[in-house]
């Protein structure tokens, strides 16, 4: 799949998940029956356009409820998206991931590979464990990740504040804190490819756990692979698809598939075995 197709899917997914267009002008959110269904990506349910529920917000609310009941419904939704797509959700369906990619297209100083990159990625697992699971279980009625960190919620707040005077009149320290975080993420997106997805997103951390088992996943044909390194040079999540196929960081964007001169990689339910020979004209992918 070429990158333009993926871009189109991302745009359509973002639009479908935020199709309550009149909300952007009225400053009111949609409250119909679709809101009981969780969307796959990070999309705040308080966004004026949102038609569905954010899976992370729903999970935190279930865990921080006064009377604890295991959240079968939300966990089931997360398990379904994870087992079906893994982090292809991040690469194809997440509106906030798409926004970061759009910002990264702006010509600016780019630096995607640096020493701290790998250790920084562990932060999202700490956020998942602490802010999404452990603390909401102990601090009741407080979705801590949403409250202190989630940039999608801040974006929703900004969009709501434009046409909702009740919201705009109550903006205070917490909003400023979240706006600073959102600003840092957006500026970092100019330089680094999808920094929030790499370092902070607990939803990506959950889906990453399913990458090895998901129905839609990466496949490599070892007989075709010539270990040229084109795929790892092309990977903007900085993994080596040959050594770490279906690594938890892989968002299935397909850069490696397009870069491979031997068609050894494919994304899908099954390994694709093509009969075509390697094109002698196919130059290795130009490393970013």
């Amino acid at each position: 799949m070429d990158n333009r197709k993926r871009f189109s899917i991302q745009a359509v997914a973002a639009l479908l998940q935020n199709a309550n267009f009149k909300g952007f002008f009225s400053g009111k959110i949609y409250s119909g029956p679709l809101k009981q269904i969780c969307v796959p990506g990070l999309n705040c349910y308080s966004c004026p356009g949102a038609l569905g529920a954010c899976p992370l917000g729903s999970l935190q609310n279930s865990l921080s409820a006064l009377k604890f009941r295991f959240p079968y419904y939300v966990v089931g939704m997360l398990l379904f998206f994870g087992a079906f797509l893994g982090r292809a959700v991040c690469g194809f369906l997440c509106p906030f991931g798409w926004i970061q990619e759009l910002i990264h297209r702006i010509p600016f100083f780019k630096r995607n590979r640096f020493r701290a990159d790998r250790p920084l990625r562990n932060i999202k697992y700490i956020i998942l464990a602490l802010l999404v699971i452990i603390l909401p279980l102990t601090v009741k009625l407080t979705p801590l990740f949403c409250k202190y960190l989630c940039p999608a919620g801040t974006s929703a707040g900004i969009l709501l504040a434009v046409n909702n005077t009740l919201v705009s009149s109550r903006l205070g320290f917490l909003f400023t804190w979240k706006a600073v975080i959102l600003g840092i993420i957006l500026v970092a997106s100019l330089i680094i490819w999808r920094p929030f997805c790499k370092y902070l997103c607990p939803l990506g951390a959950i889906y990453g756990l399913f990458n090895r088992f998901s129905l839609i996943r990466m496949h490599i044909d070892p007989e075709r692979c010539i270990s040229c390194g084109s795929c790892s040079a092309a990977c903007r999540m900085n993994i080596d698809p040959v050594r770490e196929i279906n690594h938890a960081e892989c968002i299935r964007c397909g850069d490696c598939v397009r870069a491979c001169p031997c068609s050894a990689l494919n994304l899908g339910m099954r390994q694709k075995r093509t009969q075509t020979e390697i094109s002698p004209d196919h130059a290795p992918f130009d490393a970013r």
Partner: peptide, 19 residues
């Protein structure tokens, strides 16, 4: 449980938007 999800998602979440 879907009713609890709907209840929360159909109101503006003050924590989420930073209020």
């Amino acid at each position: 449980q879907q009713t609890a999800v709907l209840q929360k998602a159909s109101q503006i979440c003050m924590e989420c938007i930073g209020l």
